[in-house]
């Protein structure tokens, strides 16, 4: 019985590892993942960023949204020409144009999100939190209740404690097993 329970535990861990390492769809999501990548690169916690990841990406030939653009060349061509740089005269440059482009982009962003949209987002967020809180408390209380209900039933007595703890962690499974092992034994 003990060997069997340990085998089950290891199989569960193996399955969990396979699940975690399997390719998943979120990296293929459109704007959300791009925004996240931008957030990572602009995060103030730059000291925690593993700069070597850039070289890893190049060596493995992976493409990312940011590495596809050659920032330096583009900016140099647009901003300064050698003669103007020598003169120290940047008045002919497109700083204001750049700024106005940014301002108009920001203004467009704000106009796109009017008050009703903000209220809608707030309400969605509130819903997520309310349902999430109910689920969280419900899962904990459900686990406690399930453990209490099954404490003197066959399902709890005949299984070794190692497996019982696993069942309590995923108590909906334990509830499914009650019809098969729900007879009180003590």
């Amino acid at each position: 019985m003990t060997t069997r329970s340990i085998t089950i535990i290891f199989l569960a861990l193996l399955l969990a590892t396979v699940f975690i390492s399997a390719p998943h769809s979120s990296l293929n999501a459109e704007s959300a993942s791009t925004q996240q990548l931008e957030q990572i690169t602009s995060d103030s916690n730059l000291s925690n960023t593993n700069w070597d990841d850039d070289t890893e990406e190049k060596s493995t030939g992976k493409d990312s949204a940011l590495s596809a653009v050659n920032w330096d060349e583009k900016e140099d061509m647009e901003e300064t020409s050698p003669s103007e740089k020598e003169k120290g005269d940047f008045s002919g440059e497109s700083w204001e144009d750049e700024g106005s482009e940014n301002e108009s982009d920001a203004a467009d962003g704000l106009q796109a999100l009017n008050q009703s949209d903000i209220d809608k987002l707030d309400s969605q967020e509130r819903q997520v939190h309310i349902y999430g809180f109910i689920l969280f408390i419900g899962y904990i209380l459900g686990g406690i209740l399930t453990a209490f209900v099954t404490r003197n039933r066959k399902i709890a007595v005949s299984y070794p404690p190692e497996l019982l703890i696993l069942l309590h962690t995923f108590w909906p499974l334990e509830l499914l097993l009650i019809p098969f092992g729900g007879k009180p034994v003590r």
């Binding site: 990572i40 960023t49 593993n50 990406e57 992976k62």
Partner: peptide
């Protein structure tokens, strides 16, 4: 493996 970063996950 998931995010190509050993030190930080996405926000």
């Amino acid at each position: 493996a998931l995010y190509n970063s050993t030190t930080v996950t996405p926000n």
